[in-house]
């Protein structure tokens, strides 16, 4: 796998060692007022950004940490945190 990922504990490692945990969608919403559609959207719908997205990765064959990185989905390269607009 060409992708490398920087684990906060183990540093830059081969992408093989990690499991993808999806785009960062923020904490679990409160259950109050959720409709089947809004819940389904929260769980399954993704923006599929062509560009930089913040996403979760799990160091499965390593330290076992969940962490976020920024990745450019058009180049499949990890990038630095973009500056706030």
């Amino acid at each position: 796998m060409a992708l490398t990922i920087t684990c906060p504990i183990c540093d830059k490692r081969n992408g093989y060692e990690f499991r993808y945990g999806g785009v960062d969608k923020g904490p679990r919403p409160d259950e109050e007022g959720l409709t089947p559609t809004s819940w389904c959207d929260h769980v399954h719908m993704n923006k599929c950004v062509a560009g930089i997205q913040k996403e979760w990765w799990f160091h499965r064959d390593g330290c076992g940490a969940w962490f976020t990185i920024y990745r450019d989905t058009t180049t499949n390269l990890e990038v630095d945190k973009p500056e706030a607009n």
Partner: peptide, 8 residues
Amino acid sequence: EWFRYHTR
């Protein structure tokens, strides 16, 4: 992994 994911 499951426990850690859902409490991340």
